[in-house]
Amino acid sequence: MHNIFVYCEIDEGQVADVSLELLTKGRKLANELGCKLEAAVIGHNLKGIEKEIYPYGVDVLHVADDKRLAPYTTLAHAHLVVDLFKKIKPEVALFGATSVGRDLAPRVASKMKCGLTADCTSLVFGDHKDNKSGKEYKNLLYQIRPAFGGNIIATIINPDTRPQMATVREGVMKREISDKAHKGSLKTIKTDEVLTDELFPVRILERHMEKKKINIKASPVIISGGYGVGSKENFELLYELADVLGGEVGASRAAVDAGFADHERQVGQTGVTVRPKLYIACGISGAVQHTAGMSESAKIIAINNDPKAPINELADYSIIGNIEDIIPKMIKFYKQNTK
């Protein structure tokens, strides 16, 4: 009762990265409240999945294993989660802000008549006093997220309804094993007793999933290009620099929209959040929606021919000039001065 709950999503037979990140956050929140961390995995062929999950500090793992439950469909998963919530009454419930999580969580929240905050970038406990009623609340979950196209940062709370639900995007929280030897207890959900045909109105006729190709999040060095790079051909310069520096190539949305780079490389509010050791922003103006995803990089270099570009204010070094000119010089110096 009143524990922290995480919905674990399965991706290509494994627990999705975002779920492991949420378990890490969930463990910390549970420690703060002095409560347990519970999780659920819903899918098929889940034998042994607990071995992947327990090291993140899960105390109780609920498993629903049934061939009708994979691939994911909304109503069946929502039904199982709502059923579970009614039983275990979690204080906080976290979902990945993925295609699945953002389909599932609102349906569950509507059924539970509780609040849900999408795409949180930070979750902390804090107190609250309602000005009207004077009522005081201890340890509410502050759900912090950008809104209004990233132009404001809002702190949202759900004072009176439970669970306090939130979704979080992949890469926003850190992932850390809490204890390799930790073991929780396993609770099997008897799917035959709860799943009825009415829960499967939507039938999957066909599915083409692409393998995850690029993961720029993990790279210590990111060379990102924006609309100012000018063309797909010019992006080759960025790949070359990334190659010599041992990094990955990122992009702004304007560059992705223009077809200069794949969507998987997009950094920012609607892309991935990165915090590399070094972020080089080439031909990127520095709109908040972009900087929301990279401002925590340890070192930032901006290359822009406009001295007034907002990105320069965020950068540790701003190089004023054209990328066509500057990047080859960087490559040349690096090659000459390292082995």
């Binding site: 008549k113 509780c114 609040g115 849900l116 905050t117 609250h128 502050y142 950008p146 990233g150 132009n151 404001i152 940062i153 809002a154 702190t155 949202i156 709370i157 759900n158 004072p159 009176d160 309804t161 908040v288």
Partner: peptide, 10 residues
């Protein structure tokens, strides 16, 4: 059920 506790301008 959700309340905005605080808004900060970026």
């Amino acid at each position: 059920p959700t309340k905005v506790k605080k808004i900060e301008n970026v």
